[in-house]
Amino acid sequence: MNDVMTSVEFNDLHKLAGKKAYEGEWMSIDREHLQMFSKATYLDPDLVDLTFSKNNEFGSDLIDGFLLLSILTYWNFKYFPMHGDRLWGLNYGLNKVRFVAPVMLSDRIRPTCTVSRMEKRGEGWFGVLDVTVEKEGSEKPAMTAEWLVLFLESPEK
């Protein structure tokens, strides 16, 4: 994890531009979390016809791309180098997401986040985060995403 910013103050977020913000640890997604994601997104056979999903060539151990995408939030909470009692980030959306290689239950993945831009916006900082999710043993990444986040500081109470 060399070359990674380990801590940055709110007013210095612009110093992250062009730098790697974090490289996460390897992890796997287990069946329990895959099933919880299915339930949370209403992919229940009592609610919808899942025949289309069952016809995929990878089988039921395929991790849904949207589950991978949702884990970006977990990784940012865990690894992003900005910390403080009044600091927070507002998910501003995504410019581009690509699911490049399939991820199965037994596969190990890890994120790398580089800040391509960080600009002052009002009282906060508008960041463009380039996240690549590696898949262990694969030449291709599992996913790439250009994520937009507005970093803010809550007023003192």
Score class of each variant (00 low, 15 high):
92 Y>G: 01
88 W>M: 12
88 W>V: 09
125 W>K: 01
62 L>W: 10
128 V>A: 03
69 L>A: 12
131 V>H: 06
153 E>V: 01
61 D>H: 15
74 Y>P: 02
44 D>E: 06
71 I>H: 11
22 Y>S: 04
23 E>K: 03
31 R>L: 14
79 Y>H: 14
40 A>P: 09
133 V>A: 03
153 E>Q: 15
130 D>K: 08
98 R>Y: 01
16 L>K: 00
123 E>V: 03
48 V>H: 10
154 S>M: 15
88 W>S: 12
127 G>R: 06
42 Y>E: 11
127 G>M: 15
140 K>A: 15
84 G>E: 12
28 S>E: 06
59 G>Y: 06
60 S>A: 15
120 K>I: 04
54 K>F: 11
96 K>Y: 04
136 E>C: 11
59 G>A: 09
7 S>Q: 14
104 M>F: 04
22 Y>P: 05
99 F>N: 09
93 G>A: 04
150 L>Q: 07
20 K>Y: 03
121 R>I: 10
85 D>I: 02
116 S>H: 00
93 G>M: 00
104 M>N: 09
147 W>K: 08
13 L>D: 07
109 I>R: 09
99 F>Q: 07
56 N>M: 09
20 K>M: 02
121 R>G: 03
67 L>S: 04
64 D>G: 01
80 F>N: 02
111 P>R: 12
129 L>S: 00
97 V>D: 02
51 T>E: 14
33 H>R: 10
85 D>Q: 05
18 G>W: 01
42 Y>I: 08
150 L>D: 02
46 D>V: 10
15 K>N: 08
59 G>S: 09
13 L>W: 05
126 F>Y: 11
60 S>H: 14
81 P>E: 11
67 L>Y: 15
26 W>F: 07
6 T>Y: 07
59 G>K: 08
103 V>A: 05
20 K>I: 05
156 E>T: 10
17 A>E: 08
15 K>S: 14
77 F>I: 10
105 L>C: 12
70 S>D: 08
117 R>L: 00
113 C>D: 08
108 R>V: 05
19 K>N: 05
12 D>K: 10
83 H>K: 14
157 K>T: 03
22 Y>F: 14
113 C>T: 00
24 G>C: 07
19 K>M: 04
111 P>T: 11
125 W>A: 01
61 D>Y: 12
154 S>D: 10
143 M>W: 01
71 I>M: 15
11 N>H: 02
98 R>D: 15
64 D>Y: 13
126 F>H: 07
106 S>G: 06
57 E>T: 09
45 P>Q: 11
72 L>R: 05
122 G>K: 11
110 R>T: 09
93 G>S: 09
148 L>Y: 07
66 F>G: 00
119 E>G: 10
114 T>G: 03
38 S>N: 14
78 K>C: 06
65 G>C: 05
149 V>F: 10
70 S>E: 12
81 P>A: 11
19 K>L: 13
85 D>Y: 10
125 W>N: 08
145 A>C: 01
9 E>W: 13
152 L>N: 14
